[in-house]
């Protein structure tokens, strides 16, 4: 059997293991995001949104759909990789992979794919819920999918790095709580940055999540505060950078070998 066939088997094994993991505990992994997002739709969309009026020319509810979906994707992808990889470190079954001939990049790809799978599942669930509240039609399925995929990969990689450095279960919730959530909220989920004074507009531009949300909004609605090309370029730079960091850490055995 060729080397590549073996790698494919290994990758599939890790992916299936990851999918089974989050499916078994779907009440913890999939359901919460669906409920939270539904609440956002009810409260911000229905109750408050009517008073806010249109944003960027769209009804407020429609405007926030892309951000809410992407927020769920980001949270879930990140959470999946960080908690799964950290558990495998904590309970030592990461060793099953370390003694095997699986190359580091295959292990990384397997975990990233697992995270993306959960992001996809939750993303689809949340979009379905959104369809119940609004009557948006997807502007460009291709762009929507590509932005989803790139965003999910990026945050899966970030979750992986978090897991490598984590030494306790507290360490895996610090980044989501203190960095990810604020960046997402300030990334224009609920508003167009055109509303901000010029100074805060430029500050917002330093937030990578802003680019993803706007690109995703373009995919779903056809409107964006940011040129699409810039958004893609920035996301790609992050993906390449984080991948190199992950591979470097794995090669050195940081956090997983003594």
């Amino acid at each position: 059997m060729s080397r590549w066939q073996r790698y494919r088997v290994t990758l599939t094994t890790i992916l299936v293991k990851e999918v089974l993991r989050f499916s078994r505990i779907w009440v913890q992994t999939v359901l919460p995001s669906v409920i939270t997002t539904a609440l956002y739709f009810v409260i911000f969309g229905r109750l408050i949104g009517e008073r806010i009026g249109p944003m960027d020319g769209y009804p407020y509810l429609d405007f926030i759909v892309p951000g809410l979906v992407l927020m769920a994707v980001i949270t879930n992808t990140y959470a999946n990789v960080v908690s799964s990889f950290y558990s495998s470190k904590f309970s030592r079954f990461i060793e099953e992979m370390l003694v095997s001939p699986a190359p580091n990049w295959v292990i990384l790809a397997g975990y990233v794919a697992g995270g993306v799978a959960r992001g996809l599942l939750v993303g689809v669930a949340v979009i379905t819920v959104a369809m119940l509240f609004t009557d948006i039609r997807i502007h460009s399925v291709g762009i929507t999918l590509v932005v989803f995929l790139l965003t999910a990969v990026l945050f899966a990689l970030a979750g992986f790095i978090n897991a490598i450095f984590a030494n306790s279960f507290d360490d895996i919730s610090i980044v989501p709580t203190f960095i990810l959530t604020p960046l997402t909220y300030l990334g224009g989920v609920f508003y167009s940055i055109d509303l901000l004074p010029p100074f805060w507009q430029s500050v917002s531009l330093a937030n990578p999540i802003l680019y993803m949300i706007n690109a995703f909004r373009y995919g779903l609605l056809g409107v964006s505060d940011i040129p699409l090309g810039v958004a893609f370029a920035i996301v790609m730079v992050f993906i390449v950078g984080l991948t190199l960091v992950c591979l470097h850490l794995l090669r050195r055995g940081v956090g997983i070998k003594t």
Partner: peptide, 29 residues
């Protein structure tokens, strides 16, 4: 390797632990 300390996922069934290990070695299902 049979290690000194347990290093498997406690919540997986026996068969799955062994099958996963085979998968990591690239052995088809």
């Amino acid at each position: 390797l049979v290690p000194q300390e347990y290093n498997f996922n406690l919540f997986l069934p026996v068969l799955e632990v062994v099958l996963n290990q085979a998968g990591y070695y690239g052995i088809p299902r």
